[in-house]
């Protein structure tokens, strides 16, 4: 749950800030931009955004995670309109996105590929195989965003694996690196639309895990937890949500 809240502003800006080109009526539109949520465990934020964007009815969100619903604990290709790749196991989405960017470049398509990774996910070796290959391939039609909330499942990143200096690592691999406040819509939009000739871009979005809910913010346990009956009204009050809006 916490990871969905840290990435929410990024996804909202991508879909509603005039960044991603898509047509919910034609999810297979050839010249669409593509988005992959490599940190698939934050799928509930993606489902909310896809529903609001019109890929499917917002009513379906009520059944997420229940038998019969296609909206499960990780996103699945072909079962959910607007999902470009099944993700869940970490360290896969970047390579998949590189493959799409590569194919679109071969076809001379003017479309862009976005992929969101978790910062903990960047402990996977395959992320760095992808990080080496995208600049080599000159994929300037690719933007990776790292949801840098500095927490992973059990603790702070820095208490588990040292990732610093994080931006310098990407820079050294040849990426166009931008560091932003991942909850500031103007900064997010500007970074997502930035292009550098011949180089892929990476946006290191500094975020807060559990953003917007005081008792969730920066608490590792909310990587796993869902609010219980007592916590849900508190959460709704802090986010200014009403029962009617959720119905």
């Amino acid at each position: 749950m916490g990871g969905a809240f840290s990435v929410a502003d990024i996804l909202a800006t991508l879909y509603f800030g005039g960044v991603l080109r898509y047509d919910p009526q034609k999810p297979d539109w050839e010249d669409r931009d593509k988005f992959i949520l490599s940190k698939g465990h934050s799928c509930y934020a993606l489902y909310a955004v896809l529903a609001r964007a019109g890929f499917f009815s917002e009513k379906e969100l009520r059944y997420a995670g229940k038998p019969g619903s296609s909206l499960g604990g990780h996103p699945k290709l072909r079962e959910i309109p607007g999902v470009e790749a099944s993700t869940g196991a970490l360290g896969h989405g970047l390579s998949f996105a590189i493959g799409i960017a590569c194919a679109d470049k071969i076809d001379g398509r003017d479309s862009h590929v976005y992929v969101v990774l978790g910062d903990g996910e960047c402990q996977e070796g395959s992320v760095w195989e992808g990080a080496l290959s995208a600049p080599t391939l000159g994929l300037d039609n690719l933007t990776a965003v790292v949801d840098h909330n500095k927490l992973q499942a059990m603790d702070a990143l820095e208490n588990i694996v040292h990732m610093k200096p994080f931006a310098e690592k990407w820079r050294a691999f040849g990426w166009n690196v931008m560091e932003i406040d991942g909850h500031d819509h103007a900064q997010i939009r500007e970074a997502l639309l930035a292009r550098a000739d011949g180089r892929p871009a990476v946006v290191i979005a500094n975020t807060v895990k559990g953003k917007g809910v005081s008792f969730m913010e920066n608490k590792p346990i909310w990587h796993f937890r869902m609010p219980n009956d007592k916590e849900l009204p508190m959460l709704m009050e802090e986010l200014g949500l009403t029962e009617a809006e959720l119905a």
Binding site: L77, E84, A85, G91, H92, L94, S95, F96, A97, I98, G99, I100, A101, C102, A103, D104, I106, D107, G125, S126, E129, G130, L132, S133, T136, L137
Partner: peptide, 28 residues
């Protein structure tokens, strides 16, 4: 030369990329 890529010694990345390319109609 336009239907060929040597991705270096990175098998996982190659197969993840291959899946992405196939999702766009290529036959890797």
């Amino acid at each position: 030369p336009k239907q060929y890529l040597n991705l270096g010694i990175s098998e996982a990345n190659m197969l993840g990329m291959a899946a992405g390319m196939a999702s766009r109609g290529k036959i890797p």
